[in-house]
Design a protein around this nucleic acid. Structure first.
Length: 139
DNA sequence: GCCAACGTTGGC
DNA sequence: GCCAACGTTGGC
């Protein structure tokens, strides 16, 4: 299993909206960036991910699971853009902020820190475990 | 609101 | 194929 991070502006698509979609989940649509799309192509059913709020929050707020592998993005006719579906798993007991991540030595190499603009990105297993622990959820 | 970083577009 | 111009993202 691999681990990922999905970034969203809470004003556009928030964790609460994701949770409201329940077990069926929702398309992670609207991605118009090749790097992000390519990572989604690598995702497998059951892969886990963090849900990150950019802009105002700048914090990881919960965990998600890939519940549909790569398929066309229903929000465009352009065949270049594809996406996966994700569903909410666990809300963090305590959001893990970007500031905390930056202050944590073991997380200094995260893509979130190194390439802040990439909206879909891989997370290593050790990063996954540590952030889950900081957020107060079971891995 | 500003600006740095990055990606994309299009002229040559 | 290069690169200038432009648009977008996201942290501050």
């Amino acid at each position: 299993m691999r681990y990922w991070l999905f970034k969203s502006e809470p004003d556009t698509w928030s964790w609460d909206q994701q949770v409201a979609k329940g077990a069926l989940g929702e398309e992670w649509d609207g991605i118009r960036n090749y790097q992000a799309r390519n990572f989604m192509r690598e995702m497998k059913l059951g892969d886990r991910g963090f849900f990150y709020h950019s802009q105002k929050d700048k914090a990881v707020v919960g965990t998600v699971e890939v519940c549909a592998e790569i398929h066309p993005d229903s929000t465009t006719d352009d065949p270049r853009w594809e996406c996966v579906d994700i569903r909410a798993l666990e809300p963090f007991a305590r959001p893990v902020t970007l500031q905390e991540i930056k202050e944590t030595e073991a997380l200094a190499e995260m893509v979130l820190v190194k390439n802040s603009r990439l909206s879909v990105q891989p997370v290593t297993e050790s990063e996954w475990r540590l952030i889950c622990e900081m957020g107060g959820v079971q891995t």
